[in-house]
Computed example of a mutant assay.
Amino acid sequence: MIQRFIELGEGYSDIYEWMELLETNEDRFHNVCIFTSVLKDVKKLSVALILKPASESKFMPIYFCREGIEYSLEKTSKRIQLVEKTMKEKNYSPHRLEVKHSSYFAEPALYHQYLTGVLRLHHILPPLS
């Protein structure tokens, strides 16, 4: 099985695209993850939507908005509120994981490999077949 990250972006409109992917692919839903990472004392959140392969395909996409949401105890971001509201409406509970910030990696592909390993370690992604 091929498991690959597809980055959408970090902006406000990207969250709407992410939520639309969830809405239109509800029959393929596998999991949702919210990653927390820290860089220079600033917490950032990333969201990932993991879909099951389409029909006979061996491709498992992971739609990803990387580190575009600042996390603060004082004020919750509108973007994370939208994600949490959508999750609650669908009765899904996201996996929340603390991970390294992507800046620790030389390129995005290495970061994606790291996240894939973390997801497999927590049995969120199935093992390669």
Rank of each mutant, 00 (worst) to 15 (best):
M1Y: 05
I2V: 12
Q3F: 00
Q3L: 01
R4M: 06
R4H: 11
R4Y: 09
F5K: 01
F5W: 07
E7Q: 11
E7V: 05
G9C: 02
G9R: 04
E10R: 14
E10C: 07
E10A: 09
E10M: 06
G11F: 09
Y12F: 06
S13T: 09
S13F: 12
Y16K: 10
Y16D: 13
W18R: 02
M19N: 07
M19I: 13
E20V: 00
E20F: 00
E23P: 00
T24L: 02
E26Q: 07
H30Y: 09
N31K: 15
N31V: 04
V32G: 03
V32Q: 02
S37L: 04
V38R: 06
L39R: 07
K40A: 14
D41G: 13
D41W: 05
V42N: 04
V42M: 06
V42Q: 07
K43W: 13
K44M: 13
K44V: 10
L45M: 04
V47M: 04
I50R: 00
I50M: 05
L51K: 01
P53I: 01
A54W: 06
S55I: 05
S55N: 11
S57K: 02
K58V: 12
F59Y: 15
F59E: 09
F59R: 12
M60L: 10
P61Q: 03
Y63C: 00
Y63N: 03
Y63T: 00
R66S: 11
R66E: 12
R66D: 08
I69F: 08
I69Q: 03
E70H: 08
K75N: 13
T76C: 04
S77T: 01
K78S: 11
Q81P: 03
E84C: 08
M87N: 05
M87A: 09
K88W: 06
E89G: 03
N91L: 13
N91E: 14
Y92F: 15
H95W: 13
L97W: 07
L97E: 02
E98K: 13
E98Q: 11
K100V: 07
K100P: 06
K100L: 14
H101R: 08
S103P: 12
S103N: 15
S103A: 14
S103E: 14
S103F: 11
S103C: 14
Y104T: 11
E107I: 14
E107P: 09
P108I: 00
P108F: 02
P108N: 01
A109Q: 15
A109V: 13
L110I: 08
Y111D: 09
Y114F: 06
T116R: 13
T116S: 14
T116E: 10
G117N: 14
R120N: 15
R120T: 14
L121S: 08
H122T: 08
H122Q: 12
H123Q: 15
I124D: 00
P126L: 05
L128S: 06
L128E: 12
S129C: 08
